[in-house]
Amino acid sequence: MARILRTTGITGRTRLLLSVLFLAIGASGCASFKEVTAFASLSGNAAGYQALTRDYVGALERRKQYQPPKFHGELEALTMRREAQRSSLDVLQQTVADYMQGLGSLASGEIRTFDRSLKDLSASLNEATLLDRNEKQAVGALSTLLARSVTALYRQHEMKKLIRDGNQPLQEVMKATRKIIKSGIIPDLRVESAMAGRYYDNFMLAPDNPVEPVAIALGKEAKAEALGRIESRIQGAQRYDAVLEKIAAGHQYLYDNRDMLGNDELGRQFKQHISELRAAYRNLLDVAR
Protein backbone atom coordinates (compact mmCIF):
# COMPACT_ATOMS: atom_id res chain seq x y z
CA MET A 1 0.00 0.00 0.00
CA ALA A 2 2.71 2.44 1.06
CA ARG A 3 4.58 1.54 -2.12
CA ILE A 4 1.55 2.36 -4.25
CA LEU A 5 1.17 5.66 -2.46
CA ARG A 6 4.86 6.39 -2.90
CA THR A 7 4.69 5.45 -6.57
CA THR A 8 1.84 7.85 -7.11
CA GLY A 9 3.68 10.52 -5.25
CA ILE A 10 0.75 11.02 -2.92
CA THR A 11 2.13 12.48 0.26
CA GLY A 12 1.25 14.23 3.50
CA ARG A 13 -2.38 14.40 4.72
CA THR A 14 -3.72 12.74 1.61
CA ARG A 15 -1.43 9.78 2.08
CA LEU A 16 -2.26 9.54 5.78
CA LEU A 17 -5.97 9.72 5.05
CA LEU A 18 -5.82 7.01 2.44
CA SER A 19 -3.68 4.80 4.67
CA VAL A 20 -6.13 5.08 7.58
CA LEU A 21 -9.03 4.35 5.27
CA PHE A 22 -7.29 1.29 3.91
CA LEU A 23 -6.39 0.05 7.36
CA ALA A 24 -10.03 0.38 8.40
CA ILE A 25 -11.30 -1.56 5.45
CA GLY A 26 -8.34 -3.81 4.78
CA ALA A 27 -9.66 -6.78 6.77
CA SER A 28 -12.53 -7.29 4.41
CA GLY A 29 -10.95 -5.87 1.32
CA CYS A 30 -10.55 -9.20 -0.42
CA ALA A 31 -13.77 -10.74 0.88
CA SER A 32 -15.48 -13.04 -1.57
CA PHE A 33 -19.15 -13.83 -1.23
CA LYS A 34 -19.43 -16.06 -4.26
CA GLU A 35 -20.59 -19.08 -2.22
CA VAL A 36 -23.30 -17.00 -0.53
CA THR A 37 -24.29 -15.67 -3.96
CA ALA A 38 -24.48 -19.22 -5.35
CA PHE A 39 -26.48 -20.48 -2.38
CA ALA A 40 -28.94 -17.57 -2.46
CA SER A 41 -29.44 -17.83 -6.21
CA LEU A 42 -30.02 -21.59 -6.06
CA SER A 43 -32.33 -21.25 -3.05
CA GLY A 44 -34.30 -18.45 -4.70
CA ASN A 45 -34.97 -20.63 -7.75
CA ALA A 46 -35.62 -23.84 -5.83
CA ALA A 47 -37.94 -22.29 -3.23
CA GLY A 48 -40.65 -21.53 -5.77
CA TYR A 49 -42.42 -24.79 -6.69
CA GLN A 50 -45.77 -23.64 -8.00
CA ALA A 51 -46.97 -27.16 -8.81
CA LEU A 52 -47.34 -27.84 -5.10
CA THR A 53 -50.12 -25.30 -4.51
CA ARG A 54 -51.69 -25.94 -7.91
CA ASP A 55 -51.94 -29.69 -7.23
CA TYR A 56 -53.25 -29.16 -3.72
CA VAL A 57 -56.03 -26.78 -4.75
CA GLY A 58 -56.88 -28.73 -7.91
CA ALA A 59 -56.99 -32.10 -6.13
CA LEU A 60 -60.74 -32.12 -5.46
CA GLU A 61 -61.61 -31.31 -9.06
CA ARG A 62 -59.46 -34.27 -10.17
CA ARG A 63 -61.21 -36.54 -7.69
CA LYS A 64 -64.67 -35.86 -9.09
CA GLN A 65 -64.07 -38.48 -11.77
CA TYR A 66 -63.64 -41.13 -9.06
CA GLN A 67 -66.82 -40.32 -7.13
CA PRO A 68 -70.57 -40.43 -7.85
CA PRO A 69 -72.16 -37.00 -8.56
CA LYS A 70 -73.84 -36.95 -5.13
CA PHE A 71 -70.40 -36.16 -3.61
CA HIS A 72 -69.48 -33.40 -6.06
CA GLY A 73 -71.04 -30.60 -4.03
CA GLU A 74 -68.90 -31.58 -1.04
CA LEU A 75 -65.79 -31.57 -3.23
CA GLU A 76 -66.62 -28.13 -4.61
CA ALA A 77 -67.04 -26.74 -1.10
CA LEU A 78 -63.65 -28.18 -0.16
CA THR A 79 -62.11 -26.67 -3.29
CA MET A 80 -63.38 -23.24 -2.19
CA ARG A 81 -61.72 -23.67 1.22
CA ARG A 82 -58.45 -24.53 -0.49
CA GLU A 83 -58.78 -21.64 -2.95
CA ALA A 84 -58.94 -19.35 0.09
CA GLN A 85 -55.60 -20.79 1.23
CA ARG A 86 -53.92 -20.48 -2.18
CA SER A 87 -52.48 -16.99 -1.74
CA SER A 88 -51.15 -17.78 1.75
CA LEU A 89 -49.43 -20.91 0.45
CA ASP A 90 -47.96 -18.97 -2.47
CA VAL A 91 -46.76 -16.22 -0.12
CA LEU A 92 -44.89 -18.76 2.02
CA GLN A 93 -42.87 -19.86 -1.00
CA GLN A 94 -42.56 -16.40 -2.51
CA THR A 95 -41.28 -14.84 0.71
CA VAL A 96 -38.47 -17.39 0.96
CA ALA A 97 -37.63 -16.76 -2.71
CA ASP A 98 -37.70 -12.96 -2.15
CA TYR A 99 -35.50 -13.25 0.91
CA MET A 100 -32.95 -15.31 -1.00
CA GLN A 101 -33.03 -12.81 -3.86
CA GLY A 102 -32.27 -10.01 -1.38
CA LEU A 103 -29.42 -11.99 0.15
CA GLY A 104 -28.10 -12.82 -3.32
CA SER A 105 -28.18 -9.18 -4.40
CA LEU A 106 -26.22 -8.18 -1.33
CA ALA A 107 -23.72 -10.98 -1.83
CA SER A 108 -23.18 -10.26 -5.52
CA GLY A 109 -23.13 -6.49 -4.91
CA GLU A 110 -23.75 -5.63 -8.55
CA ILE A 111 -20.00 -5.55 -9.04
CA ARG A 112 -20.34 -5.37 -12.81
CA THR A 113 -22.09 -2.00 -12.63
CA PHE A 114 -19.43 -0.72 -10.34
CA ASP A 115 -16.59 -1.99 -12.49
CA ARG A 116 -18.09 0.00 -15.37
CA SER A 117 -17.63 3.21 -13.41
CA LEU A 118 -14.06 2.15 -12.72
CA LYS A 119 -13.53 1.68 -16.44
CA ASP A 120 -14.62 5.29 -16.87
CA LEU A 121 -12.01 6.16 -14.30
CA SER A 122 -9.38 4.34 -16.38
CA ALA A 123 -10.45 6.32 -19.41
CA SER A 124 -10.10 9.55 -17.43
CA LEU A 125 -6.69 8.43 -16.25
CA ASN A 126 -5.57 7.91 -19.81
CA GLU A 127 -6.57 11.48 -20.51
CA ALA A 128 -4.57 12.75 -17.56
CA THR A 129 -1.56 13.69 -19.62
CA LEU A 130 0.37 15.06 -16.67
CA LEU A 131 0.79 11.56 -15.21
CA ASP A 132 3.33 9.12 -16.55
CA ARG A 133 2.40 5.52 -17.37
CA ASN A 134 3.45 4.03 -14.03
CA GLU A 135 1.66 6.70 -12.08
CA LYS A 136 -1.53 6.15 -14.06
CA GLN A 137 -1.39 2.41 -13.39
CA ALA A 138 -0.79 2.91 -9.70
CA VAL A 139 -3.56 5.48 -9.28
CA GLY A 140 -5.96 3.26 -11.22
CA ALA A 141 -5.09 0.22 -9.07
CA LEU A 142 -5.50 2.24 -5.91
CA SER A 143 -8.91 3.53 -6.92
CA THR A 144 -10.17 0.07 -7.84
CA LEU A 145 -8.92 -1.41 -4.60
CA LEU A 146 -10.40 1.38 -2.54
CA ALA A 147 -13.78 1.18 -4.18
CA ARG A 148 -14.06 -2.60 -4.00
CA SER A 149 -12.85 -2.75 -0.42
CA VAL A 150 -15.30 -0.25 0.97
CA THR A 151 -18.18 -1.83 -0.93
CA ALA A 152 -17.19 -5.27 0.38
CA LEU A 153 -17.11 -3.97 3.95
CA TYR A 154 -20.54 -2.47 3.61
CA ARG A 155 -22.03 -5.55 1.96
CA GLN A 156 -20.50 -7.84 4.55
CA HIS A 157 -21.99 -5.76 7.34
CA GLU A 158 -25.44 -5.72 5.75
CA MET A 159 -25.37 -9.44 4.97
CA LYS A 160 -24.52 -10.25 8.57
CA LYS A 161 -27.42 -8.11 9.72
CA LEU A 162 -29.84 -9.69 7.25
CA ILE A 163 -28.79 -13.25 8.12
CA ARG A 164 -28.92 -12.50 11.86
CA ASP A 165 -32.41 -10.93 11.71
CA GLY A 166 -33.81 -13.22 9.03
CA ASN A 167 -32.76 -16.62 10.31
CA GLN A 168 -35.38 -17.24 12.95
CA PRO A 169 -38.43 -16.19 10.89
CA LEU A 170 -36.97 -17.97 7.88
CA GLN A 171 -36.56 -21.20 9.86
CA GLU A 172 -40.10 -20.89 11.21
CA VAL A 173 -41.59 -20.26 7.77
CA MET A 174 -39.65 -23.22 6.37
CA LYS A 175 -40.76 -25.40 9.27
CA ALA A 176 -44.40 -24.44 8.69
CA THR A 177 -44.13 -25.08 4.94
CA ARG A 178 -42.45 -28.45 5.48
CA LYS A 179 -45.14 -29.46 7.98
CA ILE A 180 -47.86 -28.54 5.51
CA ILE A 181 -46.16 -30.70 2.89
CA LYS A 182 -45.29 -33.69 5.04
CA SER A 183 -48.36 -33.85 7.28
CA GLY A 184 -50.98 -32.36 4.96
CA ILE A 185 -50.27 -32.42 1.25
CA ILE A 186 -48.55 -35.81 0.98
CA PRO A 187 -51.13 -37.64 3.16
CA ASP A 188 -53.87 -35.93 1.12
CA LEU A 189 -52.30 -37.26 -2.08
CA ARG A 190 -52.39 -40.73 -0.48
CA VAL A 191 -56.13 -40.17 -0.03
CA GLU A 192 -56.31 -39.48 -3.75
CA SER A 193 -54.40 -42.65 -4.41
CA ALA A 194 -56.88 -44.66 -2.28
CA MET A 195 -59.78 -42.93 -4.04
CA ALA A 196 -58.50 -43.75 -7.51
CA GLY A 197 -57.55 -47.30 -6.49
CA ARG A 198 -61.06 -48.09 -5.23
CA TYR A 199 -62.61 -46.61 -8.37
CA TYR A 200 -60.71 -48.99 -10.65
CA ASP A 201 -61.15 -51.91 -8.25
CA ASN A 202 -64.92 -51.34 -8.37
CA PHE A 203 -64.76 -51.33 -12.15
CA MET A 204 -62.95 -54.68 -12.18
CA LEU A 205 -64.22 -56.51 -9.10
CA ALA A 206 -67.78 -55.38 -8.26
CA PRO A 207 -70.32 -58.21 -7.77
CA ASP A 208 -72.43 -58.97 -10.82
CA ASN A 209 -69.84 -57.40 -13.14
CA PRO A 210 -69.21 -59.78 -16.02
CA VAL A 211 -65.63 -61.06 -16.13
CA GLU A 212 -64.27 -59.58 -19.34
CA PRO A 213 -60.53 -60.31 -19.68
CA VAL A 214 -59.96 -57.41 -22.08
CA ALA A 215 -61.87 -54.97 -19.85
CA ILE A 216 -59.95 -56.23 -16.80
CA ALA A 217 -56.64 -55.73 -18.61
CA LEU A 218 -57.64 -52.20 -19.64
CA GLY A 219 -58.82 -51.47 -16.10
CA LYS A 220 -55.48 -52.60 -14.65
CA GLU A 221 -53.62 -50.44 -17.13
CA ALA A 222 -55.76 -47.38 -16.38
CA LYS A 223 -55.35 -47.95 -12.62
CA ALA A 224 -51.55 -48.20 -12.94
CA GLU A 225 -51.46 -44.98 -14.98
CA ALA A 226 -53.67 -43.08 -12.53
CA LEU A 227 -51.70 -44.28 -9.50
CA GLY A 228 -48.44 -43.47 -11.32
CA ARG A 229 -49.54 -39.87 -11.86
CA ILE A 230 -50.41 -39.50 -8.19
CA GLU A 231 -47.12 -41.13 -7.17
CA SER A 232 -45.27 -38.54 -9.28
CA ARG A 233 -47.04 -35.77 -7.40
CA ILE A 234 -46.11 -37.38 -4.09
CA GLN A 235 -42.48 -37.63 -5.21
CA GLY A 236 -42.51 -33.99 -6.28
CA ALA A 237 -43.77 -32.93 -2.85
CA GLN A 238 -41.22 -35.15 -1.08
CA ARG A 239 -38.35 -33.79 -3.17
CA TYR A 240 -39.49 -30.22 -2.65
CA ASP A 241 -39.49 -30.92 1.08
CA ALA A 242 -35.90 -32.18 0.74
CA VAL A 243 -34.97 -28.93 -1.07
CA LEU A 244 -36.47 -26.86 1.76
CA GLU A 245 -34.59 -28.93 4.32
CA LYS A 246 -31.30 -28.14 2.52
CA ILE A 247 -32.13 -24.42 2.25
CA ALA A 248 -32.96 -24.29 5.95
CA ALA A 249 -29.75 -26.14 6.90
CA GLY A 250 -27.62 -23.94 4.63
CA HIS A 251 -29.04 -20.74 6.05
CA GLN A 252 -28.64 -22.01 9.60
CA TYR A 253 -24.98 -22.67 8.81
CA LEU A 254 -24.57 -19.12 7.52
CA TYR A 255 -26.26 -17.83 10.66
CA ASP A 256 -24.03 -19.91 12.98
CA ASN A 257 -20.92 -18.69 11.13
CA ARG A 258 -22.03 -15.18 10.18
CA ASP A 259 -18.95 -13.64 11.77
CA MET A 260 -16.83 -15.49 9.22
CA LEU A 261 -18.67 -14.09 6.19
CA GLY A 262 -16.23 -13.22 3.44
CA ASN A 263 -13.66 -15.60 4.90
CA ASP A 264 -12.25 -18.13 2.44
CA GLU A 265 -12.46 -20.92 5.02
CA LEU A 266 -16.20 -20.38 5.44
CA GLY A 267 -16.55 -20.38 1.67
CA ARG A 268 -14.80 -23.76 1.41
CA GLN A 269 -16.89 -25.34 4.17
CA PHE A 270 -20.10 -23.89 2.79
CA LYS A 271 -19.56 -25.52 -0.61
CA GLN A 272 -20.81 -28.82 0.81
CA HIS A 273 -24.18 -27.22 1.63
CA ILE A 274 -24.39 -25.79 -1.88
CA SER A 275 -23.62 -29.19 -3.43
CA GLU A 276 -26.32 -30.88 -1.35
CA LEU A 277 -28.86 -28.20 -2.23
CA ARG A 278 -27.97 -28.44 -5.92
CA ALA A 279 -28.42 -32.24 -5.84
CA ALA A 280 -31.79 -31.92 -4.08
CA TYR A 281 -32.95 -29.31 -6.59
CA ARG A 282 -31.85 -31.52 -9.50
CA ASN A 283 -33.91 -34.38 -8.02
CA LEU A 284 -36.93 -32.10 -7.81
CA LEU A 285 -36.52 -30.96 -11.41
CA ASP A 286 -36.38 -34.60 -12.53
CA VAL A 287 -39.98 -35.18 -11.38
CA ALA A 288 -41.22 -31.64 -12.01
CA ARG A 289 -40.57 -31.80 -15.77
Binding site: G9, I10, T11, T14, L106, S124, L131, L142, S143, A147
Partner: peptide, 27 residues
Protein backbone atom coordinates in the same frame (compact mmCIF):
# COMPACT_ATOMS: atom_id res chain seq x y z
CA UNK B 1 -30.08 -1.80 1.75
CA UNK B 2 -29.51 -2.60 -1.90
CA UNK B 3 -30.85 0.85 -2.84
CA UNK B 4 -28.46 2.33 -0.33
CA UNK B 5 -25.57 0.55 -2.00
CA UNK B 6 -26.40 2.37 -5.24
CA UNK B 7 -25.99 5.69 -3.43
CA UNK B 8 -22.92 4.43 -1.65
CA UNK B 9 -21.35 3.60 -4.95
CA UNK B 10 -21.79 7.17 -6.06
CA UNK B 11 -19.80 8.21 -3.02
CA UNK B 12 -17.15 5.70 -3.94
CA UNK B 13 -17.07 6.98 -7.48
CA UNK B 14 -16.44 10.39 -6.00
CA UNK B 15 -13.64 9.02 -3.82
CA UNK B 16 -12.10 7.33 -6.84
CA UNK B 17 -12.27 10.55 -8.81
CA UNK B 18 -10.55 12.29 -5.93
CA UNK B 19 -7.72 9.80 -6.02
CA UNK B 20 -7.39 10.76 -9.65
CA UNK B 21 -7.17 14.37 -8.53
CA UNK B 22 -4.50 13.34 -6.07
CA UNK B 23 -2.62 11.92 -9.02
CA UNK B 24 -2.97 15.25 -10.76
CA UNK B 25 -1.68 16.96 -7.64
CA UNK B 26 1.54 14.95 -7.77
CA UNK B 27 2.04 16.17 -11.29
Amino acid sequence: TIKHIAKFKQALDLASALVLFAGAVTS
